[in-house]
Amino acid sequence: MAKNLRSALRYVDKKKYLYIMLIPGVLYFLIFNYVPMYGVLIAFKDFNFNKGILGSAWIGFENFRYMFGLSDFYTVFWNSLILSFLKLLFGFPFPILLAIFLNEMRSRTYQRFTQTLIYLPHFISWVIIGGILVNFLSPTWGVLNIFLGQLGIDPIFFLADESYFRPIVVLSSIWKDSGWESIIYLAAIASVNTELYEAASMDGAGRLRRIWHITLPGIKSTIIVLLILRLGHIMNNGFEQIFVLQNQMNLGVSEVFETYAYRVGILGGRFSFGTTVGLFTSVIGLIFLLASNRIAKWMKEDGIW
């Protein structure tokens, strides 16, 4: 026992700088994240303003029972999951490709210029983007339908038609954020050892082969880490975007957990419902994250730890 302790101390002493460096960060998470974490108990309590969170009465899984008992719970669950999955399938690779092809541009000036343009929409809020889209897609006055009309196609009521909702969400989020998301891949590409490229061009490798054999492997671990983190948020669809594109006519596919929590929790005056839904989606997210990290490890890749 004492021997173990001594060898542990010796180990810590050897790595003391590393451990000292960790202290501020760990303290930070303890104070700013773990101290207030008792707030999740609200999901299991009937919150009383006078008694506070800890003093309020327990109601057990009552909120969860209510949530699972709602007849449209499963519709909402699938809507959230399908939308996330589609965003992942189409939205996740897009910034990677963008970064790679930006990197392949020969003119540095033009590269910088286009880079600056593609990240602009990130700074315009969904409220504004939504307004533009609604105008753009309008069946009567929208530019898109006027254009389709000239091709002899009857006007399409995009925002009222459930089959168009998911494509609109996926495409508009690619439009708004893939430029922004490509920044991190650009940083990863910038860290790839340039000597490898030089060696490859000596060997006479074409552009696509260089991308495939050098760029992609060089940023693979960044891609995997981002994919795992993204899977952790599989149940989050982005409230603002859904909210601006959602309406009473596409509700069947547009209702997701975030909007549902709002409708039932706040409109209906069930205050702890939002916490309950949040807790539920977090647990699902955590499971996805841990599972995907395990898979990454199993495939001999660097996971998130």
Binding site: P36, G39, V40, G285, L289
Partner: peptide, 13 residues
């Protein structure tokens, strides 16, 4: 990683 998923909410903060 855990802190990405669980947060105390408004009042404790």
């Amino acid at each position: 990683t855990f802190t990405m998923f669980f947060n105390g909410g408004l009042i404790p903060n």
